[in-house]
Each structure stands twice: as C-alpha cells, then as structure tokens.
Design a binder for these strands. Structure first.
Lengths: 218, 218
DNA sequence: CGATCATTCAATATAATGATTGAGTAAGAG
DNA sequence: CTCTTACTCAATCATTATATTGAATGATCG
C-alpha cells in the first residue's frame, strides 16, 4: 500500500481516505449518516441498495477512518467518526460547485430552475425564529427528524407533503430544509408549495450544517 | 457517469472530484503545485516519475476541475484552479491525521522521532520575526523559493544543507519550513541541524498555508 | 523549412474496484 | 437448542484505473 519513504507512505494514506470518498453511493451514505447514526438495513432502504452492498461500502469507509460503528443488540449503527469528516465533505462540495463542469451543469439545469429566489441564510432564519415571522418545515423522513431538528420545526416528509398541505399556514412564509445544501427534498418541497400558492423559501443548507455551526437544536 | 436523478448526478460529480484526489502521486503533484505553477517536465523531475505518466495525472485532475493550465511557448504550466482546492487537501489531511490508522502510524513512527519539540506556530513566528529573534530557513528547492517565500527567509535546499551549515548562526534559533505540514524536508533539516548542535525547530506548516492565511510573503 | 523540445495521445498489459450471490456469524426470540 | 434477524464475509465477474511504450502534436529555433 505504501512505497518507500515516509513521504510516499503519507500520501498513500491520504489517498486511501480520498478513495473512500470517491464513490457516489458512499457519499450518499455519508449524507444520511450526517443526520445521525443509522443501522445498515435502514441505510440500505433509504438509498435503495442491497444490504450486502451497503455493508461493503460501510466496511470500506470504516477501515479508512471515515466511520465508526457500535453494536446494539442485533443492529450495527454507523456514524461519522469525527466532525472533521463532515468538514471534508463540505470542502469537497465547495470545490465541486465552483470547479467541476459536470456539477455546475447539474446545478444550473435542475436546481437553479427550482430555486428562483434566494435561499434563506442560517443567520436570517435565526432572526425570523426570534420574532416568530416564519414557519420552519423539515421535509426529511420522520426518523431523521426524530434524531434532531431545528427548534420549532414542523416535520412533513416530502412524500406526505401534498396531502398534508392544510397543516401549513397560507399567509406566513415557510422555510423548508432537509439534509444539506443540495438535498433534493427541500428543492422539491419549495417548488410544490409555490405551485400551490404558498410563500416558501429554502434554507441555504441542512440540519447537519445548522448543528455544526453551534446553533440551538431540538 | 451519472445515474438517474439529479441527486445521484450530483453525488457522482462530487465522487469524480474525490477520485481525482485519490492517488498518492496526484496528491504529491498537488503539494508541489501549491508552491506555485510548474511545467510538466519540472514536476516529473521533482517527484521522480515519467513525463507521460505525470501528464496523464495532470489531465485527469484538470478535467475534474482541480487544476488549471496555461501554455507559454513550449511549456504548459499547471496550477491549482482555486484556493478552495488547497482547503480541500488540508481537510483531507486533517481527517487522515486523526482517523486513519495507517497515517497515524507513519506519523508516530517517522515524524514524531524527528520532532521531539513543539513546532512553531505561524503566530509565534510572526512575533519572532518582528523582534528579530529567529532565523527563518527555507529548505525547498530554489525554484520554489523563487516563486515565493517567507519574509527574510534564507534558502538552503535540504540537499545542500550539510555543506552550507556555516551560513547559519549557531546562537540564534533557526525555524525551518518547506512545502506543508508533513513535508519531509523540514523534518530532516531540523534533525540534521540538531545533530550538529544548532538550535532548530520546525514551522507548523509550509509556505502555502502561510500565504493563504494572509501573512506577508516575499 | 526541418530539427528539436515539451507535451499529449493511443494502445496495451496489469491491477484494482464494484455489484451480486450465497454462505457464514452474532445476537436475541421462542 | 433451534429459528429468525441483521449483518458480514468470500468468491465471482464485469468494469475501470494505472503505468508503460511509442507515436503524434504544437511550438520554437537555427
């Protein structure tokens, strides 16, 4: 795995870590785990892959040092081994947004169309929470909501949003969020709400970023 | 390259970027390029690989968005496309230092032995530059020194250090630095200087980090 | 223009990675 | 103790990555 000198050995070690990140499914797994620890089975269901395959990816990431796991009864729960792991994925995202033509294309094509208005910053949302001038909507699945969410947030998973529209105020502005800056759920939610005539905007990123920036959670 | 939804397309794009980082030689190339732009040939010589091989790696990284290039006469010069790229490699390093057992082993085995005293922080070095209580030693090759260095630094490439020892003061403390936090050159330099009875310590990281933190350069 | 130099491209062999399948293991339930 | 559940491991095959070689391109210089 390592060549001769300590220099090469170090770079090989860094490269191992990067390899562990270098797969779409693994990044997707990491995004879900950023919401809170999960069992292999739940993860597999969430991202639509066979359990054995997810188990392989998890093992690889654990070996590389990205993940930690604990056993509780029949279940094994995985989680990011370190907050620095989330900073690493954030750094990856930032570079990709700005410098990867493929990524910029997707952003320009899909996301831009659904987000004609500016997203709400964390700071601005904090202000609006204080003077109670916005309804915060969490569109993640309920188990992720249960593992932690923004203070005062209402949880309506995206798949239920259409038939539970009446639970939302028509006059107040709604701020939707989900797993992270490019999580599709919040984009879809905002688009749906606007089509139905509600005032909706999107939080600039998701729950993990909110939590990591030290803001209060529930 | 991308599967169905925009979500998968995005993750695939992020993964492409991570793949471009996921090779020891490519990280080594990036470390050199972090010092300043370089031609393919010089790079190949610096890290000891065939030119064609380096060219392949460079093309791959440029396509992924990590690098930019410009042609000048017969030479093509490559450089990191964005300061965020260096932040990304720094994030990778941080996670590896703390969570990769392989990396921790190399650090514990090789580097720790050569660095029994604490490294000097950028802040501390700034203070000591102001009251002129330390000699700053840049042990990188002269072309990297020429492309930018710490103010007042003396350049003695590591390979010349032994025979140019008399150029260094025996009474003042010497602070050595090179390309980055785990660059071997500075470690070796400090070890050599101490063996010869000089007072030497290592800067906590290298020139790119100094520059990126906004401190003055020459 | 032809020679030379720096770089890239194309072709190839070798090696590593990823998904799938089915068997294996650990913990709890009955 | 056996059965079920949740996960991991091992083996396979298809795909993709890497290094090497030699040929092709692009730019300068005599």
């Amino acid at each position: 795995m390592s060549s001769d000198g300590p220099k090469q050995a170090l770079f090989a070690g860094f490269a191992e870590l990067a390899k562990a990140l270098a797969h779409g499914h693994r990044l997707e797994i990491l995004e879900v785990l950023a919401q809170g620890e999960r069992s292999v089975e739940v993860l597999a269901g969430r991202i639509g892959l066979p359990v054995a395959n997810v188990s392989q990816h998890l093992r690889l990431m654990r070996r590389a040092g990205l993940l930690a796991s604990r056993r509780s009864g029949k279940h094994v729960f995985y989680r990011p081994s370190d907050p620095a792991v989330l900073e690493l994925t954030a750094a990856l995202r930032r570079v990709a947004e700005r410098n990867s033509s493929e990524v910029r294309e997707v952003i320009g094509g899909y996301f831009r169309a659904r987000d004609s208005f500016e997203p709400v910053s964390r700071k601005e949302l904090m202000r609006r929470l204080k003077d109670d001038s916005a309804t915060v909507l969490d569109v993640r699945p309920d188990d992720e909501f249960a593992a932690g969410h923004l203070p005062g947030a209402v949880n309506i998973p995206l798949r239920d949003l259409e038939r539970r529209l009446r639970e939302l105020p028509r006059s107040r502005e709604i701020v939707a969020y989900c797993r992270g800056p490019w999580c599709v759920l919040a984009f879809e939610a905002v688009a749906l709400l606007r089509r139905r005539g509600l005032k909706a905007r999107r939080l600039e990123d998701g729950f993990p970023e909110w939590k990591q920036s030290g803001l209060p959670t529930a």
